[in-house]
Simulated assay, not measured.
Amino acid sequence: MPRSFRPARSALLLAGLLASAGVAHFVAPRQFDATVPRTLPGSPRVWTQASGVVELALAAGLVVPATRRASARATAVFFAGVFPANVKMAYDWRNRSPRARALAYGRLPLQVPLVLWARHAGRAEG
């Protein structure tokens, strides 16, 4: 397998993605607040901040070899768990411009490669 696709490197790249997203939850929270399903109790901001903290923790876990495997599994579960927020976004954006709708609808199938990426990142180097 090419070096760029090895699990350790993949885990570091995924950690960078998660860390960036986690920071974005605090820097620009309004865009994330809007995707929080209203069926969840409490303020959307609390859920936005909580998911940001989770993303930062998952990123940290992926960087540390001793916690990488467990963090990768947790990351896969996290990506599956936030899927309802992406569905809500797609529904909410159904009457927006074609470009905005394409963005919202395009996020839905992206969860699958993200879950697979997380699973790959947790594999032992061979």
Rank of each mutant, 00 (worst) to 15 (best):
A118N: 09
L18Y: 12
G61N: 01
P29G: 02
D92T: 15
A57W: 12
A57Y: 10
A66N: 04
L103D: 03
A60T: 14
A19H: 05
A59E: 01
R45M: 03
F78V: 12
D92C: 13
G42Q: 11
F79R: 06
S51C: 03
K88H: 08
R9W: 04
V82Y: 11
A121Q: 03
R30N: 08
Y105G: 00
A102F: 04
G52V: 12
P29F: 09
F78S: 06
V77T: 13
L12P: 02
F32S: 05
A76F: 11
L103R: 04
G42K: 09
L12C: 05
R69L: 07
A80W: 01
P7G: 07
P65N: 03
V27I: 13
A21R: 11
G106W: 14
A100L: 11
V64N: 01
L17T: 13
A66W: 10
G22R: 15
A104Q: 00
S97L: 08
L103H: 07
H120M: 02
R30Y: 13
A50S: 04
W93H: 09
S43I: 05
T67N: 05
Y91T: 14
L14K: 02
L14I: 09
A118L: 09
T67G: 04
G61C: 01
Q31D: 03
A90S: 07
A70F: 14
T35G: 05
A24F: 00
A85S: 14
L13F: 15
L58E: 03
R99Q: 13
A124R: 12
G16R: 10
T48S: 10
G16L: 06
E125R: 08
R119Q: 08
F32K: 04
R45K: 06
L40H: 06
R107L: 00
A102P: 12
R45A: 06
G122F: 15
L18A: 11
F78T: 13
H120S: 03
P7D: 05
F83S: 01
A121V: 09
R99A: 15
A85I: 09
A59V: 02
S43Q: 12
V112C: 06
A76R: 07
E125Y: 01
D33G: 06
S71L: 03
E125M: 03
H120N: 04
G61K: 01
L17S: 06
A60I: 14
A24K: 00
R94N: 06
G61Q: 02
K88R: 14
A19D: 01
F78E: 05
P29L: 01
A57F: 12
T48N: 13
A59Q: 04
P65I: 00
R107Y: 00
T67D: 00
P44V: 00
A121Y: 09
S20Q: 07
E55T: 07
S97A: 07
F83W: 11
R38N: 04
A11Y: 11
A80C: 07
P37C: 12
Q31W: 09
R99T: 15
A74M: 12
Y105V: 01
A66D: 04
A28N: 12
L40Y: 09
T48W: 14
V87D: 01
P109N: 09
L114V: 05
A28L: 12
V77K: 03
W47G: 00
M89E: 03
K88A: 08
